[in-house]
Nucleic acid binder design. Structure first.
Lengths: 375, 375
DNA sequence: ATGAAAGCGCTAACAT
DNA sequence: ATGTTAGCGCTTTCAT
């Protein structure tokens, strides 16, 4: 297999029959009839080289299929041209957007993306950070603002740029790009409160080690408190970000007394679960219960009756994160904290509080498993 | 900021007041009172070093917070300990699983994951591949088996391992791990055919440059052909993998004559869209129309009436891909093609073909936007 | 504008 | 079992 030189003009360097070795700068220089330093310059600072040389080099590069050796470059430059990202999981569509945007922007600017997952575990996150440092990253994107301080120490000592994302806090020690989760949650809650709801429940995401989840919970609580309303522990459940867990969460809440007339969910995945569960229990959304989430997943718009949610500009955050990191590496000025806009998207899943007269009992759960054809 | 040595025992190397530089092997060797080679050995092949030395080195490493310099290591070893992955997008939950599994397995085995996106474009894929080669990957995971031949040439010349995933083809030139998309689609179609359906439509994913989408379409066609049934061009629409597009696709299909009684979708995202659209049009699924997909997303199980789908073991594929690549790098024997099991999951969205007498007309699309309370 | 040569931090012969 | 040393492929002073 490896013995056939199917390709033209590619290995003028291997005289004997030995293993073919990818062409290096030396070979390029030789073929172009210039010095190795000129090749380097022609590649990195074309302007500092005569047009003639540049052409010769370009041709040699092309005909040898030369590709720079990143590790050597990194070693010499003491800059890997790589950005790391540690995220809890990839399984959320909005986070996938963020990573995609980050990757594309990095690529555009000549950086590659090394990805690591923390699974919502701060100690795994630290480990992964060490690995990334070893690989040789110049900058690191983190999710949220709650991290092992050892991470910051490590990064600072080695001059690695860092940015926390999906949180916004001008007072934080680390640069960040995002929005204030608490404020966003408060706005969402206010919407419900404006509709007359007084008994509001929450299905939060797991709060431990997750300041975004914690912030949202705090925001809901604050909005209620501002109107003299309580958020009894009874009406807060914490569930992982999965549809089935959202269903479970709502089931729990529906069993509580007093039963909430509105439920705010830690994100849309949970909210979709809650919506499905409500409908499965024969409740009409929003007539019997209002449901809202965060993220504005595609599904939020499509799923009847439409899910009211806070839209979070994930792509934008990813892009901004890449720019922040790379700008800062290039010595350009960067904002310490950048706020992106969240948007309250009103859809059919939230409505006025039910009249007092409405029955609290759950209707026959089976009957709504199939849609009524409304004939 | 950088001037405060908040940390104990960390910079015995910087005598003057200058910039602190991360400790290298030299410093470790010095502190441990051994040679630099011993440090290297203690780190890489602990067994080849006396217990005493090992301990001294370990202590020095710890107290200096030493972290290996990956680029230097890669340069010397001519092995980057990095795996690349090029995927079309991350936005599919199953693909996210695959990437997560790949990443975790790589990490476990001492490799990092460099991620690149091709956006379903074969020429972008080639570009990204070049970038990855430049970064210095030892192995590459690709999605599907349809790629620019230049990719294979490039990789082969440089001795970079490659594996195609989510496809299975023992006859293919490149190693692969996955399943036969055509066979899977055929099985799914047979299920519908067994239920008596004769007019089957398909909402395929974009087929260009995507052999998985193409294979599934071919499988549906083959299953029909095997029973002497046609798949008229009229009943095939191609739509991007988004819920809204799935809705659109179904709308198109419902307008065709004869109208299909069963629709197979390129994946679950499209299928969910189709399901939502069917219900929005007042159709009962599966009484009026059967719908099936691929992937077995969480949502497939949760969304009433439950989506019949082919479950694809994405995590397993990701894990196997990591193992295949790394095993092969380590000189271990690896299978050229590995087949993973897909599983037909029967749920409520597929059922017997409607009786001939059923009306073909579409009911009022508006009325079912809100659920009938079935009171 | 171009070339020669000294490293970047590590590993792996090759000594001892 | 441990130490010495020559590169790995590139960038970058420093000469010219």
């Amino acid at each position: 297999m490896t013995t056939e030189p199917t390709h033209p003009g590619e290995s003028p360097s291997a005289p004997a029959e030995g293993e073919w070795r990818p062409a290096g700068m030396r070979e390029v220089a030789q073929l172009a009839g210039v010095s190795i330093a000129t090749v380097s310059r022609a590649l990195n600072e074309p302007s500092r080289v005569s047009a003639e040389m540049r052409l010769k080099v370009e041709n040699a590069v092309r005909s040898l299929g030369y590709i720079r050796h990143g590790a050597a470059r990194a070693l010499s430059l003491r800059r890997a041209h790589a950005i790391g990202a540690i995220i809890p999981t990839v399984d959320n569509a909005r986070r996938a957007d963020k990573i995609a945007a980050l990757q594309m922007r990095c690529r555009e600017r000549g950086y590659s993306l090394v990805l690591a997952l923390s699974q919502y575990d701060l100690s795994i996150e630290l480990q992964q950070c060490r690995s990334l440092v070893e690989v040789g990253i110049d900058g690191l994107m983190l999710e949220g603002g709650e991290h092992d301080p050892a991470i910051y120490e490590l990064l600072e000592k080695r001059g690695i740029a860092v940015v926390n994302t999906s949180v916004y806090d001008p007072a934080a020690a680390q640069p960040n790009i995002g929005f204030d989760n608490s404020v966003a949650a408060r706005r969402l809650t206010d919407h419900l409160l404006d509709l007359g709801h007084k008994t509001v429940g929450m299905i939060a995401g797991p709060v431990a080690g997750n300041d975004r989840a914690g912030g949202r919970l705090a925001g809901v609580r604050a909005a209620l408190a501002a109107r003299g309303l309580p958020l009894p522990p009874d009406l807060v459940v914490e569930r992982p970000y999965r549809i089935g867990e959202g269903r479970l969460g709502l089931r729990t809440l529906l069993a509580r007394q007093p039963r909430p007339t509105a439920v705010i969910c830690g994100n849309d995945v949970i909210a979709i679960g809650a919506l499905i569960e409500a409908q499965a229990q024969g409740l009409d959304v929003p007539r019997d219960i209002s449901i809202a989430g965060f993220d504005d997943l595609d599904l939020a718009a499509q799923m009847p009756p439409g899910l009211t949610t806070m839209a979070l500009p994930a792509r934008e955050i990813g892009e901004l994160a890449a720019d922040h990191l790379i700008d800062s590496l290039e010595g350009k000025p960067v904002a310490h904290a950048t706020e992106v806009e969240v948007k309250l998207i009103l859809r059919g899943s939230t409505g006025p509080v039910p009249s007092e007269a409405s029955p609290l009992g759950v209707k026959n759960p089976a009957e709504t498993r199939e849609r009524d054809p409304a004939g």
